[in-house]
């Protein structure tokens, strides 16, 4: 089936198999490997991207379902070579170790900060319920998001 969508501001059209998952479309067809595949079963959040501004798990969405919509992946956050405040926050606050969960964390946090300007620590932790990290113990991830909240 033919899909057409805007990915990181760029209009794309591709012919895809009906059963292709969005995450594989992004990685293998669009070449955007910043979105990671972790559990493949909607639990870890590593594959989180923005669909019309809202965080969704791209392993639990078909590429054809996203046709006609607007997607943003982690590659779409930096503007003119300047990191997004969330990316900067993860850098400054040591919000990652192996980095596998990071793109998903950042995209989920993006949705969270679009709803709440200054979430409390508890609200940040609740907003990230769908994202797992095996390295950091989450503390620095929360700090990274607080850092971004102050600058957005």
């Amino acid at each position: 089936m033919r899909v057409s969508m805007i990915v990181n501001g760029e209009q794309r059209q591709d012919e895809v198999e009906d059963r292709l998952l969005l995450v594989h479309y992004l990685r293998e067809v669009a070449g955007l490997t910043g979105t990671h595949v972790g559990c493949e079963s909607s639990l870890c959040g590593a594959c989180t991207v923005l669909l019309d501004g809202r965080a969704v798990k791209s392993c639990t969405l078909l590429a054809v379902q996203a046709s006609g919509r607007r997607l943003v992946t982690v590659e779409g956050l930096a503007q003119n070579g300047r990191l997004h405040p969330l990316q900067e926050g993860f850098w400054e606050e040591h919000g990652l170790q192996c980095g596998f969960c990071t793109p998903g964390m950042i995209m989920a946090a993006h949705d969270l900060l679009s709803r709440m300007k200054h979430p409390s620590e508890a609200e940040i932790r609740r907003g990230l319920e769908g994202n797992l990290c095996r390295c950091t113990g989450y503390q620095h991830i929360v700090k990274a998001i607080e850092y971004a909240a102050q600058r957005l």
Binding site: S42, L51, D111, L128, E129, G130
Partner: peptide, 8 residues
């Protein structure tokens, strides 16, 4: 569920 599940 979680934020992502509630969005879909």
């Amino acid at each position: 569920g979680d934020l992502q599940v509630r969005n879909m």
